[in-house]
Amino acid sequence: MNRKILNIVVNGESHQVLIEPHWTLLQVLRNEIGMMGTKENCLEAECGVCTVLLDGKAVNSCILLAGQVEGCSITTIEGIGDPEHLHPLQQTFIECGAVQCGYCIPGMILTAKSFLDENPGSRPSRDEIREAIAGTLCRCTGYSKIIDAVATAAERMAISGGSQ
């Protein structure tokens, strides 16, 4: 097997991982680095549960080959907050009742974070939020409370001075 070393930074920590060329970033994160908060479903960039931030931008980790992210910096849900220090989005997702089964939520939060970080300090409209998160499917919530959560987090982040 033609294995190769992948150099990758995940949540600020650098990793060297022995990969097979066909592995996706999703496989590397889940199987090699143990970032299980990055979820797996359709594997065709249709559902968004595998969303991570690649150099700060939301991407579907299921369709990126590991080799394509050599030297890149990845942020997963584990990298934006922890139970003692929740990111504002994590906080508002809980407060607004935006979480049901929760399987889409890591991807949804990262999709939203990428969007909010693009325009620090902005207060996007509900329609703008809808458009920004449309690439991540949620089957439980009907999205309303997710939009509440993103709008509330944006408001708080705007007050506290932009990106977190």
Binding site: P83, L89, Q90, I94
Partner: peptide, 21 residues
């Protein structure tokens, strides 16, 4: 009352373990 769910923190931090994990 509108209280937050018990498994919310685990689910928003990626710590909640699903069968797929």
């Amino acid at each position: 009352r509108r209280l937050p769910r018990l498994d919310g923190v685990g689910k928003v931090t990626g710590k909640h373990v699903y069968a797929a994990d």
